[in-house]
Computed example of a mutant assay.
Amino acid sequence: MARNEQLVRQHKLLQILEANRFGRTLDELREAVVTELGLGTLHERSVRRDLEALQAAGIDIEMQESQRGRIWKFGPRGRAAVKVAASATELIALSLSRDLLYPLAGTPFWQGIESFWNKLQEELPPAVRKHYQEYRQTLYVRGMPAKSYQKQQGILGTLHRAILEHRIVDIEYQPPGKDVQKRTIEPYAVVFYNNSLYILAAASEIPEGQERIRHLKLDRFLKAVALDQWFQLPPDFNLEEHLGQGTGIFSGGKPRDFKIRITARGARWVAEDPWHPEQTIDQQADGSILLTVKAAHELEIIPRVLSLGTEAELLAPEVCRKMIAGVLRQAANQYGPAS
């Protein structure tokens, strides 16, 4: 049994009760939880204990007698708890955040965002709504890709449930330019990075003690099937620390120090757009800088160095310096006289 199986059931019970204002019987709740979570069996006693635990946590859930028998439903305080007041300034900030998260369209996360956004607007006084609409005409979010995860909605739902339940998943995965791969993974988390979703997971075929964690782009998933097998997160694993080791989303070995010399002109761009929160900068007498930044994979650094053109030079590691030299030679040949 997954360690947080009870927590997953309780969350699902709240969603079911929220969608059924007239309540459900204990058996109806049990059947709904079994169906929506894809469980094999579930006893009514477990559902009752979950409901009692939610009541003990302060959530207003009532048991009432009805023609259908005893039903469970939200009490008046449970319904009122979802009403939220917002100022025009808060609404503007929330709407900008909603625009930034548009690549999540088609996912359960976006459905939650839209549901909350609609509820909030219904509660707004007309004056606040009018001020928001006028101000929003002067503030735009641009640069977001025309991207949606609608096609991967089912796959993401399976993976999200498996993350909560700590279930092992069989997947079909197709990296660019390669054949479809069949893998077995232990999904840890969903990561939203640079307008794309990634599944942070351990590769089951790699033995304990070796680097097992992979960052798999959701766009490349063709299929995901949750198995009736469970895993345990490593006791020393910390998601924030893991993601903080590099500048991007690539998974690789241990983080290395990358040293880059950047001209005085290029240094202004680095100041405007830092590469990493823990980067170090050594100011040089001529205005240039020596930038030292950690990364777990050279592809987190090399594209950024190349994007600065002659304003940046990678000094170390030497093997990555040679990789850049090779890329530049190929580019020079490619951009020779047109045939």
Rank of each mutant, 00 (worst) to 15 (best):
R3S: 13
Q6Y: 07
V8W: 00
K12C: 05
K12A: 07
K12G: 00
L14Q: 05
L17C: 03
A19G: 03
L29R: 00
V34N: 09
T35Y: 13
E36R: 12
L37Q: 11
L39T: 11
S46T: 15
V47Q: 03
R49D: 13
L51Y: 06
E52M: 14
G58K: 02
I61D: 07
M63V: 13
Q64E: 11
E65H: 05
S66T: 12
Q67K: 08
R68S: 09
G69F: 07
R70Q: 14
F74Y: 15
F74I: 07
A80D: 14
V82I: 02
A85Y: 05
S87W: 02
S87Q: 01
A88P: 10
E90M: 04
L91M: 15
L94H: 01
A105G: 09
F109C: 01
W110P: 00
Q111I: 03
I113Y: 06
E114C: 02
P125H: 12
P126M: 01
V128H: 01
R129G: 02
K130R: 13
Q133V: 06
Y135D: 04
R142Y: 13
R142K: 09
G143Q: 09
A146C: 07
Q150N: 10
Q152M: 10
Q153S: 15
L156I: 14
G157I: 04
T158C: 13
T158V: 14
H160F: 11
D170H: 04
E172R: 12
Q181T: 04
K182N: 11
I185H: 05
E186R: 03
P187F: 02
A189C: 11
A189L: 10
F192L: 10
F192W: 10
N194Y: 10
N195F: 15
S196R: 15
A202D: 03
A203R: 04
S204H: 03
I206D: 04
P207D: 05
Q210S: 06
Q210N: 03
H215C: 12
L218P: 00
D219V: 02
D219R: 00
K223H: 15
L227P: 03
D228W: 02
W230L: 12
Q232I: 08
P234S: 07
P234E: 07
P234F: 06
P235W: 07
E240C: 07
E240G: 06
L243C: 09
G244D: 10
Q245E: 15
Q245T: 11
G248Y: 07
I249L: 14
F250R: 05
G252T: 01
K254E: 15
R256M: 13
R256W: 05
I260N: 08
I262P: 02
E272G: 10
E272P: 00
H276V: 02
P277K: 07
E278Q: 06
E278H: 06
I281Y: 01
G287I: 08
S288G: 11
I289Y: 04
L290R: 06
L291H: 01
L291R: 01
A295L: 02
E298N: 09
I302M: 04
V305E: 00
E311C: 05
A316D: 11
G326R: 12
Q334F: 13
Y335R: 08
G336P: 01
S339E: 15
